[in-house]
Structure formats: C-alpha cells, structure tokens
C-alpha cells in the first residue's frame, strides 16, 4: 500500500515536470512570424525587401537574441540576382546573400531557369529587415508586344540560434542544412518556420518587343544601313583631297 502511494507520488511528480517543460517549450516555439515582401523601384533593376517581425509581445524578444534568419528565395526564369553584384555587396558588408545555382546573367528569360538565392541576417529586437537586388531578363518578343509577367513567390524562412533552444521546439520540422552565411562555405543546421505573409504575391511586369514589327523593322533597318552606306561610299569616292602647306609665319605676315 505504502509502495503504491510512493509510485503515485512519483507518477504525479513526473506529470507535473513534463507539463512544465511542455508549457515552457510550447511558449518558446510559438513563433508567430509575420513577413512583408515588397518589390521596390521600377524598370529592369529592382529590390525585393523583406520586413519580418517575430511575435508582437516584446517580453519574448530574448528568445531570438543572437538568432539568424535565413531566407530561401526562388526567382522565376525571367528574374535573376547577379552573383557578382552579391559578391561585391558581401565584401562591402552591405548584404549577406549568396546564389544557390550558377546564374548566367545574359540569357533571355525563355533560355533560362528559375534560380534560388539565400539571404541571411541577424535578428534585432524581434525584427529583421532584409533586401535582395534583382534584375529582369529580356523576354522573347511576342505578337502584339505588351508586358510579360514575372511572378515572384514568397521565400522559405529558416531560423538558426547559437544554443540548443530550438531543439526544444516540437512544432518545427526536421533541420535543414545549408550555408551558415554568405561569407564562408561552412554549413549549419536551420529550422524552417511557418509564417504569415502580409502582402500579395509579387508580380513584376516587363515590356516585351512586338513581333508584328518584325518585317517593318527588318526592311527599315536594312534600308537605313544601305542608304547610309551608299551615301558614305559616294562621299569617299567624290572626295578630292586638298593639301595646304602649314605655315603660321605666312599668315602672320599677312596679318601685318
């Protein structure tokens, strides 16, 4: 009887302990992340900006102290991040972004593929502001011309913290391994976080040439070049070379 009472106490203590751990970890993993993804500027060279807020309660900001956010942004075939530009920005410590794939910056959209870029940034006061310079590729001309649409989806969001605090979170999925940052080739373990996207999917319209112009432009270009060439050939052919004897002293004499 006494033994049963002891066991019940032990079970009760265990239940209380587990409940406490569960409560702590549950509150620690209640990430409640909100992300605003915006396309800035106009034309062929723009910036995607990301405003990320972790929890609205400032008391819980200590949870993200020294944590790093990693964004995995896939860009459609009509858009690219210039690897050399990113490399310069990394060297100048203006941005930590690195392309996952080899990117040919000169190909038109139809000859290219979607690419992925990683961007990392440290969390400060429960907030992170990130950006990525992106460029539009030319699209092949279409009948009627107009605008081609590049749709840029939301990024995947990862979190990496220096200690083991994320391991306590049951809600997060299996860890993913990729670069710790753009500055080295070391790899780190990241945890993907769900988030609420506060903005619409980005749509980037890009002007395209009008295929209906093709014949007019071909004939017009050939004609302009032919007429220009013949005009030049005629001028060269008819030009009579004039020679003067350079003598500033003779003109000086004339002046006097």
């Amino acid at each position: 009887m006494l033994r049963d009472t002891k066991n019940i106490k032990l079970y009760f203590s265990l239940i209380v302990l587990l409940s406490c751990i569960g409560y702590i970890s549950a509150s620690a993993c209640d990430f409640n992340v909100k992300l605003k993804q915006v396309l800035k500027n106009q034309g062929f060279h723009r910036n995607i900006t990301y405003g990320i807020v972790f929890n609205s309660d400032e008391d819980q900001c200590w949870l993200y102290k020294d944590c790093v956010v990693g964004l995995d942004q896939t860009l459609p075939h009509g858009v690219y991040a210039n690897p050399d530009e990113l490399s310069t920005l990394r060297r100048l410590k203006k941005l930590n972004a690195v392309p996952k794939n080899r990117i040919n910056t000169e190909l038109p959209a139809e000859h290219s593929y979607p690419t992925t870029t990683y961007i990392t940034e440290r969390i400060k006061d429960c907030k992170v502001y990130m950006w990525l310079p992106v460029h539009a590729r030319y699209h092949l001309a279409m009948p009627g011309g107009g605008m081609a649409r590049n749709t840029i989806g939301p990024p995947k969001l990862y979190l990496r913290c220096p200690d083991q605090r994320l391991d306590m979170c049951g809600k997060t999925g299996a860890p993913v391994t990729f670069l710790c940052n753009g500055g080295s080739k070391d790899k780190c373990s990241w945890k993907e976080l769900p988030y609420t996207l506060l903005t619409d999917t980005l749509v980037w319209p890009i002007p395209v040439g009008n295929m209906e112009h093709y014949h007019a432009i071909s004939v017009g270009t050939a004609l302009v070049i032919a007429v220009g060439s013949l005009y030049l050939i005629k001028a060269v052919h008819e030009h009579k070379l004039v020679t003067m004897s350079f003598n500033p002293y003779s003109s000086l004499r004339r002046e006097r």
């Binding site: 106009q42 034309g43 062929f44 319209p205 002007p207 009008n210 112009h213 302009v224």
Partner: peptide, 17 residues
C-alpha cells in the same frame, strides 16, 4: 525602358536610326 519599365522599343529603334 530600363528604369521606368515603359514599352518603348519602337521609339528606341527610331532613335537608334
């Protein structure tokens, strides 16, 4: 074209001519 995203290819061609 480049910084405002306007479709002005034909006008650029004319200026090229």
């Amino acid at each position: 074209l480049e910084f405002k995203g306007r479709e002005v290819f034909f006008l650029i061609w004319l200026k090229g001519v």
